[in-house]
């Protein structure tokens, strides 16, 4: 028990004193996961719309890939990204191995299917006539799509929560393609593994507390937004 208590005490001190390792890993995590989730939204939202609203040859195959991708083991993603980025790999000439972009690539591959898959189901849960209604009130195609995403916002936000939660807490792929290089590619999860290996439990706990706080804060903010306007369910006055 002492170890844990002492660890927590030291962790708080480390956080409050702005320990360089803790600060560095935290900023790196926010940078990589934040960028990756934004890229996933930029790619996943239009892709989700396309797959939800249109029919074209090969569509079912892509939807199947998206669904399979939602359950992709991150370690396997890391392995394949690493194979491509190794100096001898197909994309080796880019020299991206053990870099921030390498981490972001792996994280996008993990998050993109989650974002796309949730967007598809969010759109498909809407009444299909909503789309016609928007057009029949004079919306342009772009305005109609914006209306659909607004209508699907509650479910769509799940996509963001799920994507962000999956990648900020992921360690295997990030370790494999980022390498946990101090000052360069060390993020919260890889730093925790490293500190535990060294026996520095205070730092490990400090990093863990920060990771927990970030994931919880992100989830709380999104949930708060998501739950706005749903009070009717609790009152039983919704129809």
């Amino acid at each position: 028990m002492d170890l844990i208590f002492e660890g927590f005490k030291q962790a708080i001190i480390l956080i409050l004193s702005g320990d360089p390792l803790v600060v560095e890993a935290t900023l790196r995590s926010l940078q990589t996961s934040g960028t990756a989730v934004i890229i996933s939204i930029i790619l996943g939202v239009p892709l989700g719309f396309l797959l939800a609203l249109t029919r074209f040859p090969g569509r079912n195959l892509i939807v199947s890939l998206v669904n399979a991708g939602m359950g992709l083991p991150p370690v396997v993603v890391g392995l394949f990204v690493a194979i491509f980025l190794w100096r001898s790999g197909a994309l080796g000439f880019l020299g991206l191995m053990y870099s921030i972009p390498a981490i972001i690539i792996a994280q996008v591959i993990i998050a993109l299917p989650l974002v796309t898959g949730v967007i598809i189901s969010a759109i498909q849960q809407l009444n299909p006539k909503i789309r016609l209604q928007a057009l029949a009130l004079g919306a342009t195609k772009a305005q109609m799509l914006l209306t659909l995403i607004k209508e699907a916002r509650i479910t769509a936000l799940v996509a963001v929560i799920a994507g962000f939660g999956a990648i900020i807490s992921e360690v295997g792929a990030v370790m494999m393609v980022g390498g946990n290089i101090s000052g360069q590619t060390r993020v919260l999860t890889t730093a925790i593994v490293e500190q535990v290996g060294r026996g520095d439990f205070s730092r490990a706990i400090a990093l863990s507390l920060i990771l927990l706080t970030i994931t919880f804060a992100a989830t709380y903010a999104l949930t708060h937004y998501q739950q706005r306007g749903t009070a009717a369910w609790a009152q039983g006055t919704s129809k």
Partner: peptide
Amino acid sequence: LAMVFQEPLLFNTTVFDNIAYGLKVR
């Protein structure tokens, strides 16, 4: 033109914003 369907097909927002929709897109 404007079209009204059998179902009201209201957007998930306030009544005001629903009625304002066609004006906002214009």
